[in-house]
């Protein structure tokens, strides 16, 4: 009995001892890793990528490519963006970047006075290099170092060629533009026109519109009323594609019409899958981000000075709808 009791006591003691030991050990081993301290001397380059439309696959891909490259190069890259089109936030992001005296700015071009003012005056004041990405602003107006992105003139030509190939050499073609001029849209337009003017039987109808969906639908409605025989639609402004298609499909059969756009809007992908767009121009946004960061670093390191003012063009190609209509 006595032996049993002492055995029990010993067992209890060892169990308690073990539990206490485990507990103590877990206290001692509760470690957290304080973030590594900052070295004031050995600073990394601080770069920012500023864009609008953070919700589009296009700009997500740009950011992805840029971040990948930045990690690869060991520089800090901050992506400042905003949802949808909001020039005010976009510009204040740019201003923040400039006043924060980052080492380089990669920015979506915005064909506006405020943008040009910021890049030409402020950035130049702090001598911060600016590279435009995806969309360009002429160098004379922005003092950008270079442009990385699609050759929009070429993209316009490609879409026009696709249109001719699909529709034939006669017909009415409506082109939806943003009512505010955007340099890249202008370039695309010019590209399209440079092809279509070779075909005198094709009538080109330029329709500037506000990019909001209601307005696009209203504009399309007017357009259809005015020109009931239009066969081809090109949404140069990809934002307008969705509204445009929706309005057309309310009025007519989509299938016999020829609808084209570009890939820089979120709705484009689903429209392509539904076969409502016949073809789009596919760009390579990931490459843009990647290349942009690379070029900026090259400039900062002094490897490539100066950068090519005309820009570095990423490939563009036509992507046709899966069902080939």
């Amino acid at each position: 009995m006595n032996k049993l009791l002492s055995l029990f006591a010993l067992l209890t003691l060892s169990v308690l001892g073990y539990l206490t030991y485990v507990s103590a050990e877990s206290i001692i081993n509760t470690e957290w890793h304080e973030p590594l301290p900052l070295s004031r001397e050995n600073q990394h380059y601080r770069l920012v990528l500023i864009s609008q439309d953070s919700d589009t696959p296009f700009w997500n891909s740009v950011a992805k490519g840029a971040v990948e490259r930045a990690e690869q190069e060991g520089v800090m890259l901050e992506v400042l963006n905003n949802y949808g089109k909001n020039d005010e936030v976009f510009l204040s992001n740019l201003e923040l970047g400039i006043h924060s005296r980052v080492d380089g700015i990669i920015v979506q071009g915005l064909d506006e006075e405020a943008f040009k003012e910021l890049t030409k005056v402020k950035a130049a004041f702090y001598s911060i290099p600016i590279i435009t990405i995806g969309e360009d602003v002429p160098m004379e107006e922005s003092l950008r170092r270079t442009y990385v992105g699609s050759d929009h003139f070429l993209a316009g030509k490609l879409i026009a060629q696709q249109l001719i190939a699909d529709m034939g050499e006669t017909g009415e073609v409506a082109i939806l533009l943003d009512e505010n001029t955007h340099y890249y849209q202008t370039l695309r337009m010019e590209g399209i026109e440079s092809i279509l003017k070779l075909y005198p039987d094709i009538t080109l109808i330029k329709v500037p519109t506000d990019p909001s969906k209601d307005k696009v639908m209203a504009t399309t409605q007017n357009l259809l009323n005015q020109y009931p025989d239009i066969e081809g639609f090109i949404a140069v402004n990809a934002d307008a594609a969705s509204g445009m298609i929706q309005e057309i499909s309310r009025r007519k059969q989509i299938a016999p019409l020829y609808n084209y756009s570009f890939d820089d809007h979120a709705d484009i992908d689903s429209l392509m899958q539904q076969g409502k767009l016949d073809a789009i121009v596919a760009q390579d946004p990931e490459k843009m981000g990647n290349w942009g960061v690379g070029l900026l670093i090259e400039w900062l390191e002094g490897e490539t000075v100066p950068l090519d003012f005309d820009g570095y063009f990423t490939p563009v190609r036509i992507r046709e709808s899966q069902d080939g209509l």
């Binding site: 973030p35 590594l36 900052l38 990394h44 601080r46 800090m76 923040l96 006043h99 924060s100 005296r101």
Partner: peptide
């Protein structure tokens, strides 16, 4: 500067530069 670490480096340097700019 003393508060700086790898995680907040970008914003911290921004913060300081912004004050310089100010």
């Amino acid at each position: 500067w003393e508060l700086g670490h790898v995680e907040n480096e970008f914003e911290l340097v921004n913060y300081i530069h912004l004050m310089d700019s100010l």
